[in-house]
């Protein structure tokens, strides 16, 4: 089903071509060449609205090839009259103009979603900060426990805001091809430790249950980004699981790759939801009330891709498991180690 949905435009176009070919064959005499040319423009427009250059090129070429079959001499791709060549050129011009415009509109709508999501995600912790601070200043709560609660919430919300801003900075860095990765030798266990420090200890409680293979080799990558990968995965696991339920983390290696897996307990997701989890601004359907955005996991995907790896989500026995596989592209040189 999901595959059909993804390629629905191409399926529609294929049937359009079938229909047009049928009409053109049956009503060849009544319609005349001009109208047959015009109806062949239809699939070009449908695909061009998708805003993809290659798709437009393929569809336009297919449409022209079919037209060339009808143009005399019929059933050959040879065209004698110059006038058809002009029509073909106009086909390409129409296709590309629509593609260009569609891309512009698409870029604007992405920007709009970005602004909406960002303002929402920044405003949520900000309103918590403002609300709690105003509460402490204006109502002077006498109960120290109450005061502590409000202040602790301010700290947690500021941390949340800080994480989001850092993710945005990373995302901007990954989007810009001019800034290459700051690659170096990384100790994955160490990066996980640093990532865990970003969270308040009482938020993590005793929930983190990790397994790190004892003979983990060094990994050649961008330590800052890999640390953010861990932070975002922890953040995600905390947000989308029931409180008090454990979060399992494991880092292991095979001869050619690092395998990082994060599991948290929650109700299973639909297959389409699993596949869309890493798309920007996607939020699993049943989670409308959860603060945060689809931003975190899309950055995880960007960071993984920047290291030529893959990231996937699975439904596990009790919840969701996210698995990151990072290929080992550079191996540490054997060092001159001293002995006891």
């Amino acid at each position: 089903m999901q595959l059909f949905y993804m390629y629905r435009h191409y399926i529609v176009t294929f049937f359009l071509f079938l229909l047009i070919t049928g009409i053109s064959l049956v009503f060849r005499q009544e319609l005349e060449m001009t109208n047959i040319i015009l109806i062949h423009l239809l699939p070009v427009i449908v695909i061009a609205l998708r805003g993809e250059w290659i798709a437009t090129f393929i569809t336009t070429t297919a449409s022209i090839a079919l037209l060339a079959l009808y143009a005399p001499p019929t059933l050959s791709f040879i065209v004698h009259e110059m006038i058809y060549i002009w029509s073909f050129i106009i086909f390409y011009i129409v296709g590309y103009t629509i593609t260009f415009q569609a891309r512009k509109i698409h870029a604007n709508s992405v920007k709009e979603i970005l602004y909406n999501t960002l303002s929402h995600d920044l405003k949520t912790p900000l309103s918590s900060i403002m609300g709690n601070a105003t509460f402490v200043v204006e109502t002077h709560p006498l109960d120290p426990a109450l005061r502590y609660q409000a202040l602790a919430q301010i700290i947690e919300s500021s941390r949340q805001m800080n994480r989001l801003i850092n993710s945005l900075l990373d995302s901007a860095r990954l989007k810009n091809p001019q800034t290459p990765l700051k690659n170096g030798w990384c100790d994955m266990e160490d990066l996980l430790t640093v990532a865990l420090r970003e969270f308040r200890r009482d938020v993590l409680h005793e929930r983190i249950d990790y397994y790190v293979s004892s003979e983990l080799p060094l990994f050649y990558g961008d330590s800052g980004l890999l640390m953010r990968l861990f932070v975002n995965l922890i953040d995600n696991a905390l947000k989308y699981s029931d409180e008090e339920k454990p979060i399992k983390i494991s880092i292991t290696t095979t001869p050619n790759a690092f395998h990082i897996s994060f599991s948290n307990e929650c109700p299973p997701l639909e297959p389409t939801e699993l596949a869309n989890l890493f798309e920007k601004f996607y939020r699993a359907g049943n989670t409308a009330d959860i603060s945060g955005s689809g931003f975190g996991l899309s950055i995880c995907r960007d960071i993984t891709r920047a290291h030529h790896g893959t990231i996937r989500a699975y439904n596990d026995d009790h919840g969701i498991r996210i698995e990151v596989t990072l290929p080992i592209l550079k191996r540490p040189a054997s060092l001159k180690m001293d002995t006891l």
Partner: peptide, 20 residues
């Protein structure tokens, strides 16, 4: 850097109770 990371790792295994 590879030397430093490797030796810190080795040293941690000897002096830390929990390396994570």
């Amino acid at each position: 850097m590879q030397y430093l990371r490797t030796y810190v790792n080795a040293l941690r295994k000897k002096i830390e109770t929990n390396t994570t």
